[in-house]
Design a protein around this nucleic acid. Sequence first.
DNA 1: GACCTGCTGCGGCTTG
Length: 814
Amino acid sequence: MALKTQKDLSPALNWFNSKGWQAFDFQQQCWSAYLHCKSGLLNAPTGSGKTYAIWLACVLQALQNPKKAKGLQVIWVTPLRALAKDIHSAMSTCCREMGLDWEIGLRTGDTSQKERQAQTKNMPQALVTTPESIHVLLAQKNAPKTFANLKAVIVDEWHELVGSKRGVQMELALAYFRHLNPKPIQTWAVSATIGNLEEAAKVLLGDQYEQCEIVKAKIDKKIEVETILPDSVDTLPWIGHLGLNMLPRITPILDEHTSTLLFTNVRSQTEIWYKTIIEKVPDLMGLVAMHHGSLDLQVRQWVEEAIHAGKLKCVVCTSSLDLGVDFRPVDMVIQVGGPKGVARFFQRAGRSGHRPGATSKIYFLPTHSLELIEAAVLKEAIATHQFESRTPLLLCYDVLVQYLVTLAVGPGFYPDEVRAHVQSTNAYKDLTDQEWQWCLEFISTGGNSLSAYDEFAKVEIMNDGLWKVNNRKTAMRHRLSMGTIVGDPVVKVKYTSGTYIGTVEESFIAQLKEGDTFWFAGKNLALVRFKDLTAQVRNSKKKTGPIPRWGGGKASFTSLLSDQLRRKIHDASISKFEGVEMKTIAPLLEKQARLSALPKENELLIEQIKSDEGTHIYFYPFEGKYVHEVLAALVAYRISVSQPISFSIASNDYGFEVLTDLDIEIEDFLELDLFSMENLLDDIKASINNTEMAKRKFRDIATIAGLIFQGYPGKGMTYKHLQASSTMIYKVFEDYDPENLLLKQAHEEVLSLQFERSRLTESLERINKQTILLKKLSKPTPFCFPIMVDRLRERFTTEMLSERIEKMQLDFQT
DNA sequence: GACCTGCTGCGGCTTG
């Protein structure tokens, strides 16, 4: 029975009061929506108590029924194991204090086998878990029984999942629950920073969207953003991303606060900052630590505990600490370098002052001069509550195939039933008959091209029409490779004693000889031997040596950030400099205007410079690195079709360069309609090395779809091996089964995810409306210099690079 | 004078 009166909420209010907290309107709103059996989305800033709001709703409803509930009632899903652990302990305490006789279970990959078995026998009333673990439960024979009594599912940090295949996996699990149970299951997403709330709610609820309620907290979370300004813009470099020269400005901030998180954008930067801090500020030795995804998990857990316990003053970290410290606020946050997106910046800011009513504070440390504009944009976007949208994924055949095998490994399935609930999701609502048949065929025979190999015919059709995996080895292999996260193979770094330190890339270790030293995890290490994907090391006294670099996804400006950035530059072009950041950078932008120009919003700036390298042409769409990479390839391709010229290309978030060693004039080529929308897709396919990228994407897709077995836990596979088997399958599909949906998906993902097709189209449309502002220059400008250096860096070592830069400066001073 | 570049995330087994 639903509750209706204010009085029914009083246990929750009392509980809040007993904690010394204050319940906000949105919490009461959330409770009454929940108590009226609604589903929906709860949107409130970090640290506002939204977690408790929704949890208390579950508890209040449970309290209505004095008998102890049988079986699993509530599932709480989080994207992180660490978060699951935190929430589990908070929920247990809450239940005890409210007098609810419920068992709260925790199930992630960390859960012991014993505990798992106990759960299978006797499910707790509430389970805190991850999307992957839910699917593991779905792969058990008794899955229908396990979830038969389910009343509610809460998906925490939904914005982290929407927009990824993990989100699609969650959609499928929710659809399964909904169709298993005739009674409606209350489904709530909890989310802080997301631009497309409504769409996110739609994705959560699929075809049950009509019952949706969006509860939006009207709390104005106070966030103070302060840019650490240089004394003058001249002291900030034009290029670079480390920001180490600003360290003297950081130390006073560390002194003034008990605990600070210092966010950097990349792992090697974290290592470098950590090293520099303890070298330059020896007082902080032992009070600073570092945290990133390639460090040993235990070390990371220790660091999280230590900052919470006040043993550390500062942790230098990457996004690895974006989440996961939900119940552990720090005093101060510093962001080094541009975060490339508003939501990410906001999220990090929220790590400080993480309490209802408290003000969060974040310092932004620009590492090169143009980042001052980014600083101004971030400040404004946060003040006006603008956040990026998370685009939900559609028709991921790989995830669907995995899901079907999961069900076949577990209870087995009848295709018609499953098709109905699969199509009730947002991701697969447009799945065609043909595509569905293809998926069924694929899991039962291996499809057109793989039917000769038994191992791909995973699912058997029983006499009664049930689709089932009977082969034990197939079932085990499937359980071993569930989930949608495909990691790159890595090299483990261990002491000779066996103590684990962390992971680096194969290519980094490959360049070292035995005895060579390097700096990693805050230690000087020497390589002893490298065998079986493990680097054995010992401590070294030598202080020199390289710092590992990890390859990974390159962040690009989000479109929200790019839009605002173009506006700021437009403002600058009419000498409008608002805010301290813009005032500080004004002299540099004026220099840009003097040397070349500042484009208005309806203009596209193109700069042409001749050097002894040849003709450099720079375009500035200000659209983020990803889009620029494609545009650069497109422009180079379209010119080269008209006459045989070869180009080298480079790009950053602001613009891109095409360079040829020939002496050309750009206006000869502008008539070619370089940015035309005609034949766009074909030209892009021809210009970028589409197949190479698609092959890499295909590796992930093939792994998710269960075509490539990643090996047994702990054993691992070398990169070469993995790539080899996926290349083989790719080739088989290409030759014998070109209509293969997984192949199609790989090409599609390259275009839509890597190259942001929709953004590309938008920016081309804009460019076509813009007037071209062509400048022929003899000296590099603040805009083009960083791109120029970026291109060189790819070809030269550091020493050679500094010589080149010196030479370049001499060249241009003439 | 300017330069060290690009994140995160989960899950599973064997068998003495």
